[in-house]
């Protein structure tokens, strides 16, 4: 027994003692916790294996003599034994080659992580979840959904109360304003409100059938006030003469011909959202790519509900 063995035994005992103390004094201690018991058992095994390996190789170094054959080459006087290729090493080497060719050709290209791939998967999963969760949403819940879409996408221009923030955008609590009607009559309109191209002529194409002449300035003012007022007051005769042939006697529009100018409809709102609009105040951008069909339906329901 020399000093080296002694130092080894002291170090191993200290390590074991340290492990026992730190585990034993921790919460749960050695009695209550299977993980702590396993930790101490593992420490004992590691020490035993270490002792076995060290003793084996120290003995070998002390007693072994070389019996191999030296290679012919000599590198600065250092020789090298000619050894057989170790079987384990050879197997590992060749399996690595097989795995390497699989990884280069199929493994990496097919299974590689891609940020865009993850994004695409997320999007598909989200869209599926959205479709199943909201497939049969209707009534008040649809309006609620429309309100949250409105608050996310529309309120920066139309305001939290949809009042258009003092004329900065259209007031959606009301179907149409006097200025807006007047602007459309003076300039015509082609805003895809029906979902397809359907132009309304400007004042040079609007005949008043009662007078048999083009609509006049006074008549424009009268009919603007009449329409903005919800089809009441003076101007009914001008409307009947110049507008009713397309927008209908009640102003509720005609399919494929003219939009409803008395009340919002969900389809009308969805079309404005999809195609954008240029009107009396300015241009509304098209938000067609930003909302899906259900969200457009919802925001249509919400805006329709505002002026009811």
């Amino acid at each position: 027994m020399n000093k080296l063995y002694l130092a080894g035994i002291i170090a191993a005992s200290l390590l074991l003692l340290g492990t026992y103390l730190s585990v034993g004094t921790s919460e749960g201690g050695l009695n209550g916790d299977i993980v702590n018991q396993l930790a101490v058992l593992g420490a004992v095994f590691i020490v035993l294996i270490a002792i076995f390996v060290v003793v084996k190789y120290v003995r070998q170094m002390q007693t072994d003599t070389a019996d191999g054959k030296l290679a012919d080459e000599s590198w600065d006087g250092i020789g090298e034994y000619k050894n057989e290729l170790p079987m384990g090493w050879a197997v590992a080497f060749f399996s690595l080659m097989v795995w390497g060719s699989w990884y280069m050709t199929l493994g990496y290209p097919v299974n590689a992580y891609s940020q865009i791939g993850e994004y695409n998967e997320d999007t598909v999963a989200h869209n599926e979840k959205f479709a199943t969760k909201y497939s049969d949403i209707s009534g008040d819940r649809l309006i609620e959904m429309g309100e949250s879409v409105f608050l996310a996408e529309c309120k920066v221009c139309h305001g939290i109360n949809a009042d258009g923030i003092d004329g900065k955008a259209a007031n959606l609590n009301k179907r149409i304003s006097v200025e807006s009607v007047k602007h459309q009559v003076l300039n015509g309109s082609n805003n895809f409100l029906l979902g397809s191209e359907m132009a309304m002529p400007d004042r040079n194409g609007l005949f008043n059938m009662n007078s048999g002449e083009l609509i006049s300035d006074a008549e424009i003012d009268a009919v603007s006030a009449y329409v903005a007022n919800g089809m009441s007051g003076a101007g009914a005769d001008v409307f009947a003469g110049a507008c009713a042939s397309c927008h209908g006697d009640d102003g509720k529009g005609m399919e494929f011909v003219a939009p409803n100018i008395v009340a919002f409809t969900p389809e009308l709102v969805a079309n404005v959202v999809t195609y954008g609009k240029k009107g009396a105040i300015g241009r509304m951008p098209n938000l067609g790519d930003r909302l899906n069909a259900k969200q457009k339906e919802a925001v249509g329901a919400y805006i329709t509900s505002l002026s009811k």
Binding site: E153, V156, C157, K168, I281, G282, R283, M284, P285, L287, D289, R290
Partner: peptide, 11 residues
Amino acid sequence: GNYRTTDWHEN
């Protein structure tokens, strides 16, 4: 540029 307009930026 896709979702804000000239008059909005102005305000």
